[in-house]
């Protein structure tokens, strides 16, 4: 037996049997930001068998105070989070098969990405993507360990643990018009680690077959407020996402150019329709005389243009920094890409 996991095996509820189950588990991590960094590091150190971690973004200076997998050098090289996460996680534990994928998770690709995993760890930064993942996990029949945090406040809710429990869609009758984001109220690293720790504790209980009641829980590390609510009575008999006649509404969104204002800063993301392919090197050459601070690598092209930093990813997404205005972002995209 490897000594590596001996202290974890000594923990009686896990033991040698539990460790064997952990070694064969495959985990899908949705997002490689703050919660994704923290949760991924814990699970990889714990020795899960396989981790897939997906993210659409690159590493920024504003990430470093809380996104523990990343370094200053990653920012300088403008690495995608999924690429840097794969590298760092593999260095932490080479026993684990780790795949980082630079991709925007949408209704078009979510099922393919999540398939062949035992569970999904939520580390996304917006409620729309959480509802998409909720539908996908329910359709695939695997649990979804929800987690979210801003400021000093975080909440967790494991979904798909018991047949008679509500899903995220049951709890959210309506989509909020505005949610608190890192962009509006900031975030401190202790709540990131606390929220991820709760998620991962539930993941380890699930993997090792330890029964537990799925509760909606919250904590605020600044005020000391905490809450734990058993929400089983909120399961809706006719829920379109988790009832017998589920239609998984968030999986059927039509395809078009999508736009999103990203959590954490002034950035608009434009996702071009799937049919549009980008050749990065010709694109970089075509804008060399128009832009400044041009950088390109196998994953992306980055530059500055009319006061905005622009990043174009190979998978057909463009980030326009320094604005929250979708129209401004589309104008810039049109100027550079035609």
């Amino acid at each position: 037996m490897s000594e590596r996991y001996s202290r974890q095996e000594l923990f009686a509820p896990i033991g040698e049997d539990g460790q064997k189950k952990i070694r064969t588990a495959s985990v899908f991590i949705l997002g490689a930001g703050a919660l994704g960094s923290s949760g991924a590091e814990m699970l990889v150190r714990a020795g899960v068998g396989r981790v897939t971690i997906v993210d659409r973004d690159i590493i920024e200076w504003t990430n470093l105070h809380r996104q523990q997998l990343y370094t200053e050098q990653d920012v300088i090289e403008q690495l995608p989070k999924a690429v840097a996460a794969e590298k760092r996680l593999t260095a932490i534990n080479s026993d684990v098969a780790i795949t980082g994928i630079v991709v925007d998770v949408t209704s078009q690709n979510v099922l393919d990405l999540m398939a062949d995993h035992d569970l999904v760890l939520d580390a996304t930064d917006n409620i729309e993507t959480r509802l998409l993942a909720n539908d996908a996990a329910l359709k695939l029949g695997i649990p979804f360990f929800m987690g979210a945090c801003v400021g000093s406040y975080g909440l967790t809710f494991p979904i798909g643990i018991q047949d008679n429990q509500p899903c995220l869609h049951c709890l959210l009758e309506t989509l909020p018009s505005q949610t608190l984001t890192c962009d509006t109220v900031g975030v401190i690293s202790p709540i990131v680690v606390t929220t991820a720790a709760r998620q991962v504790a539930d993941v380890l209980k699930y993997i090792t077959g330890t029964p537990f009641e799925p509760k909606l829980e919250s904590a605020d590390l600044w005020t000391g407020n905490r809450a734990s609510i058993g929400v089983s009575s909120m399961k809706k008999a006719g829920c379109p996402s988790c009832s017998k006649n589920a239609v998984y509404p968030f999986l059927s969104a039509h395809e078009s150019m999508k736009t999103a204002v990203l959590c954490g800063r002034d950035t608009v993301q434009l996702s071009f329709p799937k049919g549009r392919k980008f050749e990065l090197l010709p694109f970089a050459e075509s804008i060399r005389g128009t832009v400044s601070k041009l950088i390109h690598n196998p994953h992306l092209v980055a530059c500055e243009y009319s006061g905005h930093r622009i990043v174009l990813f190979r998978d057909g997404r463009m980030l326009v920094h320094g604005t929250k205005d979708v129209v401004t972002a589309k104008k810039i995209a049109a100027r550079l890409l035609g």
Binding site: L35, D125, A148, I229, C263
Partner: peptide, 26 residues
Amino acid sequence: ILAKDAYDLPINDRDQIEIIHFVGGG
């Protein structure tokens, strides 16, 4: 758990209330 239409319930001395709100970040 309170339904939305029960939010007009008066709060009395020694009540125990737990509130969890959803946020976007992560």
